[in-house]
Simulated scan of single mutants.
Amino acid sequence: MEISVIVAGATGRMGQEVVRMIEQNDHLHLVGAVSRSNVGKDIGDIVGLGKLGILCTASVIQTLETVQADVLIDFTTPEHVKVHAEQAILAGVRPVIGTSGLSEKDIESLSHLARLYKIGVIFAPNFAIGAVLMMQFAAKAALYMPHVEIIESHHDQKLDAPSGTAVKTAEMIARNRSEIKQGHPDEQELIDGARGAMMSGFRIHSVRLPGMVAHQEVIFGDQGQTLTIRHDSIHRESFMPGVKLAVEKVMELDYFVYGLENVLDF
C-alpha cells in the first residue's frame, strides 16, 4: 500500500530520523514537512539526503490545506500535539503521535473525535519495540511482585517529566496490582522530591542529563530478591521500526489506539 506522509517537527532529532526512514521505504512517500524554524528550506538538505523537493512549512494546518496525505507523524512539543492531531482528524488524515505530554483528558477527547470521524489514530509513548516489550514484562511481573519503582532517564532537552513511557508503564503495572503503601510508614523527605513522584502508590524518578537518549528501568523488590527490567535506546534509529509499523497499521484503523502494544501480536 502506498502511503503519503506529513512529518511535523521534521527538523527535530526524531523528525529527521523519521524523514530518513520514509525515504528508505518505497511504499512511504513524504509529501510535507513542518518546521517553523526552517520555513522554505528543503527538508532533504537539512537531513543530509540532498534536495527532495519538499520545502518546510510553518504549520500543520497550512500543510494539510496544500497537500494530499494519508498520515501525519507528529514529533513536536506537548503544547502543540493535541491541536495538530485534531487538525489532522478533521482533514481526514490519520495521526501517528510520538510526542509525549498528552493528558488523560486529551486522550479521551482525541479518542472521541477519532470515533466520530472514523479516523485511525495511534499514540505511542515509545516506538521502540524493546521498550514495548519492557512494559509488557513489567506489567506481568507486577502480578507477583507488587513492590516497584520506576527510574527513567532522558536527554536534558526533554520537556516533560515523567516521560510518557514511564506514565504508560505505571498505568499498566497499576492494572495488575492493588495499591499498597510501600516503604516505611514514617518515611520523611528531608528534601522535597527526594523520593520522586507518586503514581498509583509507587514512585517514578526522572533523570535528565546530556549524553542520554531514552532509558528506563523498572525495579521490583521482594523478600531476599530484586528484579530489574531495563530498556535502553542508544540511538534514535531504534524507534524507526515502530514508527514504520504504526504508519502501516493506522491505515487499517478507524479508532484511537494508545500504546504500540495494541497493534502488536502478543
Rank of each mutant, 00 (worst) to 15 (best):
D222W: 06
G201E: 04
V5D: 04
I46C: 09
M135D: 13
G32E: 13
L159S: 11
L90G: 01
I151M: 12
S4G: 07
T66Y: 01
A138D: 06
A194K: 10
A170L: 00
Q24R: 14
S109M: 10
A69M: 12
I180Y: 01
N38D: 02
V250K: 04
I173Q: 09
R230I: 05
V121D: 01
G44P: 05
L30E: 04
L49K: 08
G130I: 00
P146G: 05
M172Y: 07
H29E: 08
E108D: 14
P78R: 05
A85L: 02
I150P: 06
I97A: 01
N25R: 14
E104M: 06
L55A: 09
F239N: 13
V263M: 08
L209T: 11
H80P: 08
V19Q: 00
L110C: 07
E149K: 11
H155M: 07
V7Q: 06
S4E: 13
S233L: 09
F123E: 05
N38V: 00
E252R: 10
D254N: 15
S35K: 05
A91M: 00
P185A: 08
A88H: 00
D232F: 06
E65C: 09
L260A: 07
V148Y: 04
G130T: 01
P146C: 03
G193D: 04
H147L: 09
N126D: 09
I107M: 08
L159C: 04
Q16C: 11
S233K: 06
Q62R: 03
